[in-house]
Design a protein around this nucleic acid. Structure first.
Length: 329
DNA sequence: ATCTGTGTTGAC
DNA sequence: TCAACACAGATG
């Protein structure tokens, strides 16, 4: 049947032309017609339009990791996901080039401090790299300022749960007075009755100075988007938010307890591409550079750093029981 | 109209 | 678990 093996590269003579012999026509296994080319990477599947999808399986279910222009990018996305999902012993597409212990530890910490859903979301939106870099900078900053794990506790000492983070778009900080909440996050963390038109609800958020912000939260049928509207522009103004900066949301108690959950909002400026040495105590100026998305997901890595429990939802990890705990920090 | 990513199935 | 395949539904 399939004489269409070897989708090798070797640009052999490709008679792409419209030959189409009337005889049973052995499909070229490429180009438009039928068979999509298989990927040589694990977790990567072809898309009808020539792009590549990444996916990983867990509990008999597929978790979609997004689509990518390059096969290699999709493979890298899978690599990141598989390490978050299955830990350090997971098989990846690319060899893990551990540049520096510190870097590796930072990425490991980054992975461990985000839920699977958050990592998947970053991969889908192609923002993983950006967020990782920001995380690294923040870690460095915190490190310089000494003191440890104050990032997970609110000032009042109550434990916070990170809900999600968004890199704000130009329109989020423009004159529209609205912040679009990515659908996935909105429906997970800020449930609202979709049918009940645009009245929305009033949500209270506390910022890192204990100031309380009230935003109207509603669903816009016209754009099929969840948005924070009334009150948002004031936040943008006071914090001097610029496109590329990030806003993040946390909650105090369990995510299910809608009633008593205290919500928090935080923000951080867009990290610069390189350099920018921040001295301890120095004020951080929001960077005004505007980039689209990150370039490539380079060296994924490492399982240095221990995995903190902190998660009830995941099924057991078989691996990772004997991780070397290297203290880098 | 285009494309994503889900439904589904069968192999490993 | 995994990818191949088809296409419903999301997106622009």
């Amino acid at each position: 049947m399939d004489s269409n093996f070897t989708d090798d590269q070797t640009t052999t003579s490709e008679t792409i032309s419209t030959v189409s012999p009337p005889v049973t026509a052995t499909p070229p296994a490429e180009e438009t017609s039928k068979k999509l080319p298989s990927s040589r990477f694990k977790g990567v599947v072809p898309q009808p339009n020539g792009r590549w999808g990444a996916q990983i399986y867990e509990k008999h279910q597929r978790v979609w990791l997004g689509t990518f222009n390059e096969e290699e990018e999709a493979a890298k996305a899978y690599d990141i996901a598989v390490q978050r999902f299955r830990g350090c012993d997971a098989i990846t597409n690319f060899k893990q080039i551990v540049t520096e212990k510190k870097e590796a530890a930072m990425e490991a910490n980054f992975l461990n401090s985000h839920s699977k859903g958050e990592i998947v979301d970053m991969l889908r939106k192609h923002t993983y790299n950006d967020e990782l870099e920001q995380s690294k900078r923040n870690n460095t900053l915190l490190e310089n300022m000494s003191q440890n794990g104050l990032n997970k506790l609110s000032r009042s000492g109550k434990p916070r749960e990170h809900l999600f983070q968004k890199v704000v778009t130009p329109s989020d900080v423009g004159k529209l007075n609205r912040l679009v909440i990515p659908k996935q996050h909105a429906e997970k963390h800020f449930p609202v009755q979709k049918g009940s038109t645009s009245k929305g609800v009033l949500l209270h958020f506390e910022d890192n100075t204990s100031k309380v912000w009230r935003f109207r939260y509603s669903y816009w049928n016209s754009s099929q988007s969840y948005v924070l509207t009334k009150g948002w522009s004031r936040f943008v103004k006071e914090k001097n938010l610029k496109a590329g900066d990030s806003v993040s949301f946390q909650s105090s108690i369990g995510p299910d307890d809608q009633n008593k959950t205290q919500l928090y909002i935080d923000w951080k400026p867009k990290a610069a591409e390189s350099d920018v040495v921040i001295q301890p105590g120095q004020l951080i100026e929001p960077v005004q550079m505007l980039r689209l998305f990150g370039v490539n997901i380079s060296s994924v890595s490492s399982c240095i750093g221990k995995r903190s429990n902190s998660e009830m939802d995941l099924l057991g990890f078989e691996n990772c029981k004997k991780q070397r705990l290297i203290n880098v920090l």
